[in-house]
Amino acid sequence: MTDKGKLSIKQSDICAIEADSLFADLQSRWDEQSVRIDRALAASDVAIMKELPMKPRPSVPLRIRMLAVYVVLFVVSVAAAAYWGFLIPSLAFNALALVVSLVIELIYILLVAECLYEAVSLIILSPTRVGTLRMSRHYRRTHMQDKTPMLQMRRPVVACIAAVIALTVASCTITGIDDCFITQNHLGRTATIETVSNVINQL
């Protein structure tokens, strides 16, 4: 109200009233829905609780165990590479080959392990992640009439194929590098032995 007694409504007041009425409407709809949910839950109490088959949590999550395997494999591969490195006299080439080999081996191990992990978790343990409360595919199929779409069904197969391809490519690459490595090593050692023999002969 103004001092002259006339009604004065600002745009902001209209917006506020509009917001209040809209919010009141939304709130009432939300409350209605909450009541409906409560009613639906009360009616399907037993059915819902069937959805909670309790799987014991593993003491160490599978992902951590997989990581431990990665680390062990990596250490082994580094040790192997270092062993070869010590036997090689031609240092520049072999150092390069060593680094390349290590990087490829690391990528290969991670890639293959990840693919296999995904495949195993999809096929055996659960549809997505492992180590938590989850329904297995088998449980769904037998108890829930699971109608998993084809794409979903293909995921483990795709993961397995990816693992095999990764394994093959990585093995070929490593074999190639290792061959090169061994040849160089052999030649290097021969050359060194010959040089040493020459020196001894001269003496």
Partner: peptide, 30 residues
Amino acid sequence: GWLKTYPMDESFVASLAEDPDPRIEELYEL
């Protein structure tokens, strides 16, 4: 988007879906 499609038990949702309320749908859409 394609990864997450795991059809499951529909007992609870079916009871809600039997009688969909257009006002509630409007609310969710908003």
